[in-house]
């Protein structure tokens, strides 16, 4: 007499067999072909000037490729659903990680402004020369510098005016521009 064996809540008749879906070889060839086509597509698109849309296009294609690899090469399509759950919950947590960090960084300038938070700027030089400032002071200074520069070369490279207003990035920009 044998006792009944259960796996994933279902009775198992045959305890020494592994029952896994075996995809036909042709399926793998097709997936490889699709992956090559998609790679060629992103490569070709990268030479076209799409501007900011290029990130979206590249990411859509990358997600399509990742889905193909995960579903067919990693067998998620035919696998125990719990593995899909592990994989997708990881992706969701990565999404939360990205979203919250970028929210925080995106809103930090405004919060610094509101609260008058002090911080140090070093203008790309040694940190011993850094100055204590807050957002309002710093932006006023940037604006004044930009105006002074615009007046200075009024004949116009048009470069100074474009460089100044973006408050976030320019603090430490241009360390030693190559001569």
């Amino acid at each position: 007499m044998t006792t009944k064996t259960f796996l994933h809540g279902k009775p198992i008749d045959d305890v020494v067999e592994v029952h896994e879906h075996v995809s036909p070889a042709a399926a793998y060839y097709k997936v490889l072909g699709a992956l090559f086509v998609l790679t060629g597509l992103t490569y070709a698109v990268s030479f076209a000037d799409l501007g900011p849309a290029s990130l979206t296009v590249a990411m859509v294609v990358a997600f399509a490729k990742a889905t193909l690899v995960a579903m067919y090469f990693m067998h998620l399509k035919y696998d125990d659903r719990f593995h899909v759950f592990v994989f997708l919950s990881t992706v969701i947590f990565v999404g939360i990680f990205f979203l919250f960090t970028l929210f925080d960084l995106g809103s930090r300038t405004r919060l610094n402004e509101e609260q008058g938070t002090f911080f140090r700027v070093n203008n790309g030089k040694d940190w011993s020369e850094s100055q204590r400032t807050n957002m309002a002071e710093w932006q006023a200074k940037q604006k004044a510098e930009a105006e002074a520069k615009a007046k200075g070369d009024a004949k116009g490279e048009g470069k100074a005016a474009g460089a100044a207003p973006d408050a976030k990035g320019d603090a430490a920009k241009a360390p030693a521009k190559a001569p």
């Binding site: 305890v15 592994v18 029952h19 125990d80």
Partner: peptide, 19 residues
Amino acid sequence: DTVEQQAGAAKLGMWVFLA
């Protein structure tokens, strides 16, 4: 208990590592 259970346990462990 079963061969399949052994395979499934190893694979779940692998997926957690991949996470």
